[in-house]
Design a binder for these strands. Sequence first.
RNA 1: GGUCCCGUGGAGCAGCAUGGAGUGCUCGCCGCCCUGUCAAGGCGGAGGUCGCGGGUUCAAAUCCCGUCGGGACCGCCA
Length: 590
Amino acid sequence: MYRTNRAGELRAADVDKTVTLSGWVDRRRDHGGVEFIDLRDASGVAQVVFRDSEAAKQAHELRNEFCVQVTGVVSRRPDGNENPELPTGEIEVVADRLTVLSSAAPLPLPIDDKVDVGEDVRLKHRYLDLRRTGPATAIRLRSEANRIARELLHDEGFVEIETPTLTRSTPEGARDFLVPVRLQPGTWYALPQSPQLFKQLLMVAGFERYYQIARCYRDEDFRADRQPEFTQLDIEASFVVEDDIIALGEKVVTALWKNLAGHEITGAIPRITWREAMGRYGSDKPDLRFGVELVDLSSYLEGSEFRVFSGALAAGGHVGAVVMPGGASQTRKQLDGWQDWAKARGARGLAYVLFDEHTGEPRGPVAKNLSQAHLDGLAAATGAKPGDAVFFAASADKIEALELLGAARLEIGRRCELINEDEWAFCWVVDAPMFGKTDEGGWTSLHHPFTSPNSDWAANFQDDPGEALAYAYDIVCNGNEIGGGSIRIHDAEMQSRVFETLGIDEAEASEKFGFLLEAFQYGPPPHGGIAFGWDRVCTLLSKADSIREVIAFPKSRGGHDPLTGAPTTITAQQRKEAGVDAKPEAKQQS
RNA sequence: GGUCCCGUGGAGCAGCAUGGAGUGCUCGCCGCCCUGUCAAGGCGGAGGUCGCGGGUUCAAAUCCCGUCGGGACCGCCA
């Protein structure tokens, strides 16, 4: 037996008990005759004292992170020596036996939550990083999130089903990770980008309610909130409409935030349509923790002789603005900084007008290009007050202009410190468009090709694909998309009209997802679902800056695992066996 | 594919603008002292190709070019 108690759980009530503890040397304090060891295990830390014994001499040899076992008597600390900072601060273990279970080399990083360490070092020695309370807490929180979701969905009658991770490419749009197949040289599995098709098949199979904490893979570039392998809480249900899934999603989010963030979500989470989100916030995942809404100036500036505006409007585009409170006091350098900021985003620049702090007079380079009438009404049209700055975006592509303003809005929120970091602001973004324009002028699914049009567009979405709306919904928290889903198409005729609109002919449809279409010949139930970006949810709940904090062994840029060194090259023998270079025998694609 | 930031003993940083001896700080490490500390304290010590390569210069951590590695963002990606 390695221990009788857990170190962090000892209390005054345990005084006089003889206990054995096992754990790590969190810190040693050597006083030349008395040795203090903070012994740490997963439960916490307890102080161990060695005095006047053979064990004390042994304890002198201990170093940080040695793994040790001690036996001693729990004692009340001498008066005045209690440590109110520690849950175990009233007691200490007066030890008479010490066993070194294993020693530790000098550490490559301090096991200390008070010290910042570079992420590369942390990840290379992640097993030591995770001995620290902060990083370990994020991983434990994730475990709790899993438990809460499982319990809730179990209570709601959902069945947890694992779907394959060796499969064929699903039509999600991202690049696939591919796995060579030894038994059929020259053929490849794809790792799933999501269990999308399988969960729909499970609806055809009659489970009615499915969920899975599913690992997904996408071979795209990194971000602070993106890893090549990530996890979704994936949910699908039959005989549901949009409101049913939204209600379920709210239950999940409410339970998570109540238990893990101490935040009570009261009432229904507000819904905003996709178009409204774009128009007011320039984003399909608006951060509602602050105001500063966009203004549509397209009609107000009608007839403007300023080329930038008139050009955009003549092309049927959009001119909009966003107000930066107090922005007129910015230095020339700061205003130039905005131009660089806009250019980094692919825009030509960011036109602005400043309203004088005292007189309210509009000034700045763009002001000279506007007519007196347009200038006179500008403050009223934008809601700008004296001392504010107004940024403009104009583009023939309305979405492009709105997204630039939306990005500017977020930047204003940051620079003006308008965001309360302790706040949680949720919303559903609903009524997403079914289709988006491709660079080639065709249409592509904004969600995926099985997303159902809403009832208004069910019959005629193909006539005006750019305007058609879907039963598709995203849930957004503080400007992060944490989940999204849709009601699926269960009607073959409607599905073929979607394929037609997407320019997918029957042969291609049957090649890509014939198995799903075939399944749908056998009485598919109406169904829909949602998938939560589980890593993002856990990142938010743990208030972390990066998704990597809630992943035990994350990858760094380029898909490199700093700990194992993966990916690696393979031997010629492995290459041959895997059939990487083999030409497929005449078959496949059916 | 693009833009930007970072790289200095084991960890974290300063030094760089305005070139002048590997200079400094905090922690860790090694040794000695110390019987009530809890981020213990005191004294002493070791540890460096300033990521790498090239260039400018009498002289480069410092300036220039390239490259590698890490990070943030855009493109891409639900």
